[in-house]
Design a protein around this nucleic acid. Structure first.
Lengths: 134, 134
DNA sequence: CTTGACCCTCCCATGGTGGTAAGGTTCACG
DNA sequence: CGTGAACCTTACCACCATGGGAGGGTCAAG
């Protein structure tokens, strides 16, 4: 299986497949002329990577997950620990984004959105930016 | 005002202040020996940038906001349009993250987290990754 | 005059992803 | 058998933000 077919089979671009190899997430074989060859197990690994990425795991986390996956003597506690850390990260990010959304919704709701220059959104950003009264 | 003082006054690192200058968000003066000099207006601009970044606006968006801020004949509709676009982006991102969180919470909830290898989290990622039955 | 605290520019790294250029290979069709 | 398309290879560059560091200039206080 060539890299092009592997890309189709895994839904990962050729570029990213080469990148994942570069950072040692997988190690496909090579033909005599240097072409990468993907065995079914490599495709499975690529799809594992893709699934983990879709769950938002960082590439280093994916690397750790792959190692755990391939380690038959892993403890599920390790997987759970990694997942819980990732969940904390995701929840923190969502909280940040929700705070931004709340502020922006308030401001946008107060903005007339007409042809006049007066705008609470930009006023708010500018006033937050005013020099310290100190 | 030197870059160090500007950094303290704006809460933006020296590195980023130079970067913002490089991408033409501001243009401080220079002393004879090449040191950057920040006027009060520059500090205000830096703080504007910081406030907009904290609201999650991308640097290109911040550039547009700065231009609108400095344009006394702007229409508030332009500001609102930009903000609404940003809001859509934020909401979409939150929805993605929430979907990941929901899946991961379910899986983590079903994972014993003990010393045994069996783990629904990794099983799920691996089975999502199985070859197409096709 | 030395020392320490600044400042300068230039390069490198990250995390993921895309592009592109210059070259080699393989295959099917004529 | 030749040739062109469709692959493959490596090696760069880009993005967005941000941080680090090297190597060197400047300035003020002691």
């Amino acid at each position: 299986m060539n890299i092009g077919e592997a890309a189709k089979a895994s839904g990962i671009s050729r570029k990213m497949i080469r990148y994942y190899e570069e950072i040692a997430l997988l190690e496909p074989g090579r033909t005599a002329n240097g072409y990468r060859v993907y065995a079914p197990q490599d495709i499975h690994t690529l799809r594992f990577i893709s699934a983990a990425r879709r769950l938002g795991f960082s590439v280093p986390d994916v690397k750790a997950l792959l190692a755990l996956w391939q380690d038959r003597s892993r403890s599920s506690a390790d997987v759970k620990r990694l997942t819980d850390g990732h969940l904390r990260h995701l929840r923190a990010r969502v909280a940040e984004l929700n705070a931004m959304i709340a502020t922006l919704e308030t401001l946008a709701g107060a903005c007339d959105g007409d042809e006049r220059p007066d705008c609470p959104i930009i006023n708010r950003i500018a006033s937050t930016a005013e020099p310290d009264p100190a």
